[in-house]
Amino acid sequence: MTQDKREAYWRANLRSIAGVLAIWAAASFGAGILLADRLDAFRLFGFPLGFWFATQGAMLVFVALVFVYVRWMNALDRRFGVYEE
């Protein structure tokens, strides 16, 4: 693998990490804490929306994020030939 490709792999990883952490922060610190009172004006089934994010929604987002990142990185590893057989 050339040096350019090595750097491209790492940059692609850093971009996906930044994306994951942006959504991570938006779901927890954003929807679950800072915006929770405003979101409570909306209802999701029986839940005030802000309360739902704080007690369930943020955690579900976390789970989905990690599995998306796993798939993303496996694809990236394959594309750059660093996938472990």
Partner: peptide
């Protein structure tokens, strides 16, 4: 709802573990 700091805190750390 204030107690949700524990719910989000004790799960959100796994996102950091997985990516960092």
């Amino acid at each position: 709802r204030d107690g949700s700091a524990y719910l989000m805190g004790w799960t959100g750390g796994y996102v950091l573990l997985a990516v960092l």
